[in-house]
């Protein structure tokens, strides 16, 4: 009799295990932070708590590094008129990363670009082509080397302005991925305003499929990447722009000229385990133009996908077996 009950119990437990394994619990949350739409999709028993923790974290990060919130560290730094400002450890960390990436990209990514982007107003109703004199004046304030740092204090020349929008989402993605890992979440897709971070694999042995936006049709994608445990970030001229006399002016500025970057590139996608790096690199590579950008990738071991204005797509060596073109409008060149 005892045996029979043992047998029943064993079968029941087995069945429950089978049912439980058939689709891990999915938690998906849409929210808005850092002026963009975000989504975190996580799987596993602890997913809901972990996702809530991520949302709280991002809100708190925004409070530190937002340029527009009057209680933020960055707001204080931008309005200190040259005085030293004490920052939180987190703000200091983001600023240090921004400086490191500005140096590494020879200023093609520059966190002090704000006076220029404000002047042009691209993405707002007031977008316009400023007079060259205005551009020259704004350019004098743009130079990451003007930012002085000493421990957790920083100072900026009067009129200069830090905007961490260029790496903020990447930084947030890295931190969120770590929060999820620490909470025991093994599979997740983090989308922070178009910056993607995938955790783990989609299924055992199956990577995630990430689309890359078609610069000609922003709702669609022209290619896919099969990746796991990494970040995928894209920058392009289709995100925010305005057009005048048949010319497109995009939101990515060349810190050298003070004009929107006009190169032979439509978009750059970087795949990296560090989303902060990927975020800054996409901007910098876009500004560089394809030739210099490809050399830069080679020299710095960066994996990237370039879409050129002539619809030719270049993919760095490490990504070629992960990349598939899905649109016939583009041609692939190794």
């Amino acid at each position: 009799m005892k045996k029979r009950w043992l047998c029943t119990a064993a079968v029941t437990i087995l069945m429950m295990a089978v049912l439980a394994g058939c689709g891990q619990k999915e938690v998906t949350q849409d929210f808005y932070a850092m002026d963009t739409a975000m989504n975190i999709r996580a799987y596993g028993s602890n997913a809901q708590d972990a996702v809530n923790q991520c949302v709280r974290y991002i809100n708190q990060l925004e409070q530190d590094i937002s340029r527009t919130r009057e209680d933020s560290d960055i707001y204080a730094l931008n309005h200190a008129q040259g005085d030293w400002v004490e920052l939180s450890e987190q703000t200091t960390d983001v600023l240090e990363q921004a400086l490191r990436l500005a140096e590494e990209t020879e200023g093609c990514f520059d966190p002090t670009i704000a006076p220029l982007s404000d002047l042009w107003g691209i993405g707002t109703e007031d977008a316009r082509i400023p007079a060259q004199a205005e551009i020259d004046t704004a350019l004098e304030l743009v130079n990451y080397q003007n930012l002085q740092m000493n421990g957790t204090s920083a100072a900026l020349p009067e009129g200069a302005c830090i905007d961490l929008g260029g790496i903020g989402k990447g930084y947030a993605a890295d931190q969120v991925a770590q929060i999820l890992r620490d909470a025991g979440v093994e599979r997740a897709v983090i989308t922070l305003g178009g910056n993607i971070y995938v955790l783990g694999e989609k299924e055992d042995g199956v990577p995630w499929t990430i689309g890359i936006t078609d610069p000609d049709s922003a709702g669609d994608y022209f290619a896919t990447l099969q990746v796991s445990d990494t970040s995928v970030v894209t920058s392009g001229d289709y995100e925010r722009y305005f057009e005048q006399d048949g010319e497109r002016y995009c939101h990515i500025f060349d810190p050298e000229t003070g004009w929107p970057a006009q190169t032979d590139l439509r978009s750059v996608t970087v795949v990296s385990e560090c989303s902060t790096d990927a975020d800054a690199y996409t901007t910098a590579l876009f500004v560089m133009g394809s030739e210099r950008a490809m050399e830069f990738c080679e020299a710095h071991d960066i994996e990237a996908v370039f879409v050129k204005t002539d619809h030719v797509v270049h993919v760095t060596e490490g990504l070629r077996d992960k990349f598939s073109l899905t649109s016939s409008e583009y041609t692939y060149e190794e």
């Binding site: 178009g194 993607i196 995938v198 990430i210 995100e239 899905t326």
Partner: peptide, 9 residues
Amino acid sequence: QDGVDAVAQ
């Protein structure tokens, strides 16, 4: 069939 898990924008 041709769906993706996310799109980098």
